[in-house]
Design a protein around this nucleic acid. Structure first.
Length: 636
RNA sequence: GCCGGAGUAGCUCAGUUGGCCAGAGCAGCCGCCUUGUAAGCGGCAGGUCAGGGGUUCGAAUCCCCUCUCCGGCUCCA
């Protein structure tokens, strides 16, 4: 006998070798019929697999919510593949897993596929769904599976069978519905009729196994939801996100632009740059006593980058050009900071030396990866490099962690995810150095929640990355805090210790917002262009009712501008309705209407975004309120 | 870089069995209107149809090359 634990904690006794299906049957016939999979110790499994003593099991049914999506979409992927098999004979099949918002399947097709083919494929999928074909699971030995898929001319499946064999598997599971047979771990729903409401989303290229040395396959992205309402809600969410696309808003709100003269190099318009520069200085101001500003050259000799190790590890991304001596445009700020450190003899009394720089870096990025402000070829890092002794590392890192938490909260990002990334395959420096650095980071993180990201460190050292979740639930990588024993060695950095010996400092690289450009893009999408007041490119706009109110309108503007507020007057000869609309569309936080009544009483009629009634204020009160709003938020 | 799609006025887009001087709305400019909380009216101007080559009596439209953009893959902040 074995005993498994049910979700409510009750134990369930079963005979040896009992399967998930038998567990369901033991609980009740209704469940036996409804169950499609079992979550065993957190892992989704087919009901046909045997359970072991002591395992915690949870049976998945249509009522299981998100857990049900996995087998449902997995089956939908098989149905997609079967539809493609019917419509495009000769297709080879690769992988087709469920993913975050749906599923995909990778094919090698006899001809290119376009979205014009979607209706036909969707119709075929619906036809297969109506057939309600059962999915049957079977097991083959490696040899049988190899022979079967070789015979079926499915090279990617054969490849996967051999891959599994090399991992020590002796048999593989196979799922079949109608004439479609797939190598698959499962689990699946019972029939093709239970794939929910489906929609094909897009077609894209994808390398087999994600390796750019492999052939490029055709990937069809699709999604499915149990009900039509859920599918529609999802599609609506996509539309909403599209309306917030920072590339669209950036153009409409006059924030930034791109030009063919420099693909991937953003041009910031005055309105855009005021927002992005304003988002940064508080970061530096946050600890005036701790940070010292510096600034290094943008272009430096290639030899420098050879010495720093960037040439070896990062050459593809460095833009360079030279006449007699070869120069390179800096892709990172760290070697410059190392040179600043080395500019004179350093003492232990100088440490920790914290240099902050808003470095404008350039990197060559492959044309296909450029994407609005999210991925560009020139960007500004709110960078800092801290030079310190090994025994100061923990305190310094913890101070950075604190700073980052506080700073993100200021922008409304309270959900901060921390990732500790360790030694990558291609790394500079010795194993011992890496171990010491990783230990130091782990120690600094003690007591905080974080996840381990094995092998994803920078080439010069391990790092802690920071991700925030925006208002739409998307996760973005922002800041980073990296420990570096390698750069100080490359540049032979040293300081004189209390004992009058030469010691090597440790270097900490950190960025809070990461790329200012990217952060602005995230911010635009997070707020949909409705910037928080303190960040708005234009705090308020004065709208005089008619020509005779222009003088008063200018007085209002002057008064507010004197207090450091960004205010314009819209004195165009357009109707009021029109000027108010333009203010709304331009997302100006406050529209200040002034006509006869206001001139007489020395007041201003205030309209907030989306017509929200604020009422009238005297000019003095309004000035005080807005000034408080601007500075209050910024230092909150 | 790779796969697929696209590129017509500053922006959003019409314009395909190849055929008169290539169209609209918005934005721009000029005028009129002098306005009370989300688009007042009229006029003008604006295009080497991404660039280059080819097919044709004739190309925005068909073919080839290059560039850029979009969706992915790889990479990454």
């Amino acid at each position: 006998m074995i005993t498994v634990k049910l979700p409510d904690g009750t134990p369930l006794e079963l005979p040896d070798g009992a399967t998930g299906a038998e567990a369901a049957a033991a609980i009740g016939p209704g469940l036996a019929k409804a169950a499609v999979a079992a979550v065993v110790d957190g892992e989704m499994r087919d009901l046909a697999l045997p359970l072991a003593d002591g395992e915690a099991i949870e049976l998945v049914t249509k009522k299981s919510g998100d857990a049900y999506l996995y087998p449902m979409r997995h089956t939908a992927a098989h149905v997609l593949a079967e539809a493609v098999q019917r419509l495009f004979p000769g297709t080879s099949f690769a992988f087709g897993p469920p993913i975050e918002d749906g599923f995909y399947y990778d094919f090698e097709l006899p001809r290119p596929l376009t979205e014009d083919d979607f209706p036909a494929i969707e119709n075929e999928m619906r036809r297969i769904a109506r057939e309600k074909a059962g999915l049957s699971r079977s097991v083959m030995s490696i040899a049988e599976a190899d022979a079967f898929f070789s015979e079926a001319k499915q090279p990617y499946k054969v490849d996967q069978v051999r891959e599994l064999a090399s991992q020590g598997e002796t048999e593989v599971s196979i799922y079949q519905q109608n004439d479609f047979t797939d190598l698959c771990r499962g689990p699946h729903v019972h029939t093709t009729g239970e794939i929910g409401h489906i929609k094909l989303m897009s077609v894209a290229g994808a390398y087999f196994r994600g390796d750019s040395d492999n052939t490029m396959l055709t990937r069809v992205y699709a999604t499915s939801f149990p009900t039509k309402a859920e599918l529609d809600a999802y599609l609506e969410r996509i539309e909403l996100a599209k309306a917030r696309d920072h590339r669209r808003l950036g153009r409409r709100l006059d924030l930034f632009t791109f030009d063919d003269a420099g693909p991937g190099f953003p041009f910031f318009l005055p309105r855009g740059w005021s927002s992005s520069t304003r988002s940064a200085p508080p970061c530096v101001r946050a600890r005036p006593a701790r940070l010292r500003r510096d600034r290094d050259p943008t272009i430096l000799s290639e030899d420098l980058w050879k010495r720093s190790g960037h040439w070896e590890h990062y050459r593809e991304n460095i833009l360079h050009r030279g006449r007699r001596r070869r120069y390179a445009v800096k892709p990172m700020n760290c070697p410059g900071a190392a040179l600043v450190f080395r500019s004179r003899r350093r003492s232990y009394r100088d440490l920790p030396l914290r240099l902050a720089e808003f470095g404008h870096v350039h990197r060559h990025e492959l044309s296909g990866v450029l994407h609005g402000l999210f991925r560009v070829r020139a960007f500004t890092q709110d960078d800092a490099h801290i030079f310190c002794r090994l025994d100061q590392v923990k305190d310094e890192i913890q101070a950075v962690l604190d700073l980052i938490d506080r700073f993100y909260a200021r922008f409304g990002f309270t959900e901060v995810h921390k990732l500790l990334s360790t030694r990558p395959a291609k790394a500079a420096g010795t194993r011992e150095m890496w171990d010491r650095a990783e230990d130091a980071l782990r120690e600094a993180l003690e007591g905080r929640e974080y996840t381990l990201n094995e092998g994803d460190g920078a080439f010069y050292g391990p790092k802690i990355d920071f991700q925030v979740t925006d208002s739409m639930g998307r996760r973005w990588q922002l800041g980073t805090c990296q420990l570096d024993f390698s750069m100080p060695e490359k540049f032979d950095l040293s300081f004189t210790s209390e004992q009058d010996t030469d010691e090597r400092p440790v270097m900490i690289h950190r960025a809070v917002l990461g790329s200012i450009e990217r952060f602005l893009g995230i911010l635009i999408e997070d707020c949909g262009g409705d910037f928080p007041f303190w960040l708005a490119p234009e705090h308020a706009r004065v709208i005089p009712v008619s020509d005779r109110h222009h003088d008063y309108a200018n007085t209002v503007r002057h008064t507010l501008v004197e207090r450091g507020l960004r205010v314009d007057v819209d004195a165009r000869s357009e109707s009021m309705g029109r000027r108010i609309r333009d203010g709304e569309v331009g997302k100006v936080p406050y529209l200040l209407i002034v006509g006869d009544r206001e001139v007489e009483s020395g007041q201003v009629s205030v309209r907030a975004r989306r017509g929200e009634e604020v009422g009238s204020r005297t000019l003095a009160d309004l000035t005080k309120e807005l000034a408080a709003l601007a500075s209050g938020d910024a230092s909150a």
